[in-house]
Design a protein around this nucleic acid. Structure first.
Lengths: 170, 170
DNA sequence: CCTATACATTACAGTAAGGTCTGGTTGGAC
DNA sequence: GTCCAACCAGACCTTACTGTAATGTATAGG
């Protein structure tokens, strides 16, 4: 449950692109120089982001990368999904059932509810912060986060609970 | 930023131990059987938890593991720290400065504020949930999480901001 | 004592992720 | 048409994570 290098570096590259004016673009060497990352590494990150639909590229001598949408419409959450996957995906329980085919707690799992909630809380914060928000300084950033961090996820959880058919408690 | 197998499996083992009565203990083979994990893997997980101070062990024929504290005093957050490390540790920026010695954004980094906030939000949820809470069913769990997920972290953030000496905005 | 049981420790193999390197393709400039 | 900058793609290497194996050590019971 650690922040990964790809997530950090990829977002840093995007921050530079969010500063561009209409019609401008950035090449891989330019991003590399600005961020202090190797050219091959930037190329890989930008490819990932292109495949994820976050940026678009133009080839050729005057080519480069631009954001696929305006900076204020790209959330940090959507970028994180592309760069590092989700904290708790639906496939997680299938892939971690231990030696048996199904998890011991398959029918009634308090952990699963916990992880789902954590995922919702994360989404609540990360989907409210856009690339444009990251352009301001630390100080302005903190103001935005005060709002985003007090997420109300009760309705989401309730809906989820209704889908669960619970066995009788022993 | 994914939930790791160690975090999931380790917590599952602890859930079984939280069900023990005073004076009882669980051996590695017992945990292994209950969770459907291999004996060596359980041994590795329990060793980690012992080194982290979460459980205590007794050797010998009548040995086994017990929780180091009552289940209601062990938070999921403290267990996660032992099993998978923290989401955003202070060392992160040092280790991900790119090719240069210091990060390009060292002086004023909106990302750093974002990650710090995410860490606070995670702690807000995970430190409020204890092993004892995980013993109940999914339904009861969701009630607890409704409270824990509406965290107020503003005071924490404000304090953090005061420590930052910000350069003048351009 | 001696033995069976159970934890402790170290080393190792398989797998996935992060980064690098190389050759290929595209497209504008001259 | 030729050249070159820049993107594109895949293979490759290094590192960390995950799970396994084997050996050592401590305690209870006969």
């Amino acid at each position: 449950m650690k922040l990964s290098a790809q997530e950090e570096y990829g977002l840093r590259c995007l921050i530079h692109m969010a500063r561009l004016q209409e019609g401008e673009s950035l090449s891989i060497p330019e991003i590399s120089k600005a961020e202090g990352l190797s050219i091959p590494n930037v190329a890989k990150l930008m490819r990932l982001l292109r495949l994820g639909g976050i940026v678009t590229s133009v080839r050729g001598q005057a080519g480069g990368y631009t954001l696929a949408q305006p900076a204020e419409q790209i959330s940090v959450g959507s970028v994180m999904d592309v760069l590092g996957g989700r904290f708790f995906s639906p496939k997680f329980c299938d892939r971690h059932s231990g030696l048996g085919k199904v998890c011991t707690h398959a029918t009634d799992c308090a952990l699963r509810v916990l992880w789902t909630t954590v995922q919702e809380v994360l989404d609540g914060v990360l989907r409210k912060v856009t690339l444009k928000d990251l352009l301001c300084g630390e100080h302005d950033m903190s103001r935005l986060l005060e709002q985003a961090s007090s997420v109300q996820i009760q309705p989401l959880l309730r809906a989820k609970m209704h889908d669960c058919v619970l066995p009788p408690q022993v």
